[in-house]
């Protein structure tokens, strides 16, 4: 077959068409990659396999939804820790019980955790609901080991009456993470 095609023009045309097709194909590939970004859906099997919550976030969420019995107006009432934090937002007299009960929950981790509510929400009349990093955190409500370097913590935002927010943070250090495993 190749013996018969000795015409240089025909070979040239063939090479040109192939080259043009490859160029068009490459342009199409680049176009598709640029415009069609990767789609990630929660239902994707691969994504589900990979998904595993950061342990401290899971611990913090579980804590916030756990029940605690509190004396309110002389009557015992079972509420969640997130409700107790809201109560603490309304009335500072709930600070000791919040600290005490939180210590009971996280006590199983010994000295390797720190739970904290940033300073700015300690003033319930504070109007700006957003965290301001310039506000010094010396007034934080802190439970646990205050000596831990507080970075890479899990954070959950709890809504408060008046559509304000409280940020709750939990740091579990490597020792805690080992205990979780």
């Amino acid at each position: 077959m190749f013996k018969k095609i000795k015409d240089k023009r025909a070979i040239g045309t063939t090479i040109t068409i192939i080259a043009a097709t490859i160029v068009v194909g490459l342009i199409l590939i680049i176009f598709f990659i640029a415009t069609q970004a990767i789609k990630i859906r929660p239902s994707a099997k691969q994504a589900k396999i990979l998904y595993d919550k950061i342990p401290s976030l899971e611990v913090l969420e579980t804590y916030l939804q756990s029940s605690v019995t509190v004396m309110i107006d002389g009557k015992e009432q079972e509420i969640t820790f997130s409700d107790l934090i809201l109560l603490y937002g309304l009335d500072r007299s709930y600070e000791p019980i919040l600290k005490e009960e939180t210590e009971k929950i996280f006590g199983i981790y010994g000295n390797c955790y720190q739970f904290r509510i940033p300073y700015y929400m300690r003033d319930r009349d504070y109007k700006n609901p957003y965290y301001d990093p310039d506000i010094k955190e010396s007034g934080n409500l802190i439970v646990g080991n205050t000596g831990l370097v507080f970075k890479n913590y899990a954070e959950v935002i709890v809504p408060v009456l008046g559509a304000r927010i409280i940020k709750t943070r939990l740091l579990l250090d490597s020792e805690c993470s080992k205990k979780l495993k």
Partner: peptide, 23 residues
């Protein structure tokens, strides 16, 4: 000879399009 060459070129072009599409 040119007709044969053109048919061959056309065949190669189609094959390339299919390959590029698959790729």
């Amino acid at each position: 000879k040119n007709k044969k060459a053109q048919a061959f070129a056309f065949f190669i072009a189609i094959a390339t399009v299919i390959l590029v599409g698959y790729a």
